[in-house]
C-alpha cells in the first residue's frame, strides 16, 4: 500500500507532445480516475506509471521508492504495480488457476492462496480448472483482477477495464471492482473515457485534456463546479448559453437566471444542466413559448430532449421523466430551476 506521486511528467512521441507537466498525487488506498477523450494521453500516463514507457522529464514515486527520477527508471517487473489491461487479457494457454497464481513465486503458488484469491473475487471454486475462453465476460474480468492482486501489489492500474463489457455488465463489474479494491485496500488508478464511470467509481477524478491536467476534484466537486465550460460540457453534458452577467444574475435567452458564483461580470456564458431544465407544453399557437423540440432520445426511465431556442444559440438539453414526453416539433415553455454557474468571456465564434 502506498501513495503515488507524479511531478512534472512530460512525454513526446517524435514531434508530438503527448503529456505536459503532469503533477498528480494519489493517496494511499485511494481510487483516482483519469478521465478524458481518446487521444488525451491518459493511457500513456498509465503506461508510464506501469513502467512500459519512460517519460522524457519528471519523477514518479510510489511510497518511499523513486521509480522514475534522477537515478533512471525501475523496470516494470520490479515496481510491484499491478496492471489490468482492456478486456482483461488473460493468458489463453493457462487455466484460471494458472492465471491467478502466475505472478507468485513458485513456493507461494499454493491451493490456499488460490482459494483465498478466488473467494476475494467471488469466483466459484469449480472454475479453477477452466480456461479463459470458457468464462463469461464478467468472470474473465474478476480473474484478471485476482491475478493482478495476488502478488499484493502496491498500486493497481486499470486501463478502460469495462470498455468491452455490455451496458448491463458494466455497472455491476464497476461496483465489483471498487468493492475488491477497497477490500484489498490497494491504491488504484483507473483510466476511462466514460464520465459516468469516473464519477460513480472514483474517490477523485483527474480530467486530462490535450496532455495536461485540466482539473482534479472529487466527483461532486467536479460535477458542480467544473473549472471551465469545456469540462462542464464533457463531464455533465450541460448546455452553455451566452449571457450578460451582473450582480449575481445572468440575462440570457431564457430570461433572468440566478447565478451561484457571483464573481464574473460583463459578457459571459452560463452553464445549464439537463436536470435543471423543466419543459411545459405550450399550445400550438402560443406566441410566448420559447422553444421547439428537435430531438427526443428515450431511455425508459426518462428521456433526453433537445430544444431549439430563438436566435443562433446552441441547442438546450433537458432531462425529462418518461411519463411526460414531448414530441418532436412541440412548442414548449422552458423554466430553469436553481442557480446556474457563470463563466466570464464570450463563446468562441
Amino acid at each position: 500500500m502506498a501513495a503515488v506521486t507524479m511531478t512534472g511528467i512530460t512525454k513526446s512521441y517524435g514531434a508530438q507532445r503527448v503529456l505536459t507537466g503532469i503533477d498528480l498525487t494519489v493517496a494511499d488506498g485511494e481510487l483516482v480516475a483519469l478521465l478524458g477523450p481518446s487521444g488525451c494521453g491518459k493511457t500513456t500516463l498509465l503506461r508510464i506509471i506501469a513502467g512500459f514507457a519512460a517519460p522524457d522529464e519528471g519523477t514518479l514515486t510510489v511510497g518511499d521508492d523513486e521509480l522514475v527520477g534522477a537515478r533512471g527508471s525501475v523496470p516494470a517487473e520490479r515496481r510491484r504495480i499491478g496492471y489490468v489491461p482492456q478486456e482483461g487479457a488473460l493468458f489463453p494457454h493457462l487455466p484460471v488457476r494458472g492465471n491467478i497464481l502466475f505472478g507468485l513465486p513458485r513456493r507461494e503458488r499454493t491451493a490456499d492462496r488460490l482459494a483465498e484469491m478466488m473467494e476475494l473475487a467471488e469466483l466459484p471454486a469449480h472454475l479453477a480448472a477452466s480456461y479463459p475462453h470458457q468464462l463469461s465476460g464478467g468472470q474473465q474480468h474478476r480473474v484478471a483482477l485476482a491475478r493482478a492482486l495476488a502478488p499484493r501489489p502496491r498500486v493497481i492500474l486499470l486501463d478502460e477495464p469495462f470498455a468491452a463489457l455490455d451496458a448491463a455488465l458494466r455497472e455491476s463489474a464497476g461496483r465489483e471492482v471498487t468493492r475488491l479494491l477497497r477490500a484489498a485496500g490497494t491504491t488504484a488508478v483507473l483510466v476511462t473515457h466514460d464520465q459516468s464511470e469516473a464519477l460513480s467509481l472514483a474517490d477523485r477524478v483527474a480530467v486530462l485534456r490535450h496532455g495536461r491536467l485540466a482539473q482534479v476534484a472529487d466527483p461532486v466537486g467536479l460535477y458542480t463546479a467544473p473549472a471551465d465550460v469545456d469540462i462542464a460540457s464533457f463531464v455533465g453534458g450541460a448546455s452553455v448559453l451566452p449571457a450578460s452577467l451582473q450582480n449575481g444574475s445572468a440575462q440570457c435567452v431564457l430570461g433572468d437566471l440566478r447565478v451561484e458564483n457571483p464573481g464574473p461580470t460583463g459578457e459571459g456564458r452560463v452553464l445549464v444542466r439537463p436536470e435543471q431544465v423543466h419543459l411545459r407544453p405550450a399550445a400550438a399557437g402560443a406566441k410566448d413559448a420559447v422553444g421547439v423540440v428537435t430531438e427526443v432520445r428515450y431511455f425508459g426511465h426518462g428521456a433526453q430532449v433537445r430544444v431549439e431556442l430563438p436566435g443562433t444559440t446552441p441547442l438546450l438539453v433537458a432531462r425529462v421523466a418518461g411519463a411526460e414526453l414531448p414530441a418532436v416539433g412541440d412548442k414548449v415553455y422552458v423554466e430553469v430551476q436553481g442557480p446556474v454557474r457563470a463563466y466570464p468571456g464570450e463563446a468562441p465564434a
Binding site: 512500459f52 516494470a76 517487473e77 515496481r79 499491478g82 496492471y83 502478488p151 492500474l157
Partner: peptide
Amino acid sequence: APPVLDEVARSLGLGRLKAAWRVTVPL
C-alpha cells in the same frame, strides 16, 4: 499473440526473457 500479455506478465514481476518464456513461447 498480443504483446499486452507480456506486459501483464512483467507487471506481475517477470523480466523480459522470463515473460517471453512463460507467456509468448507457449502461445
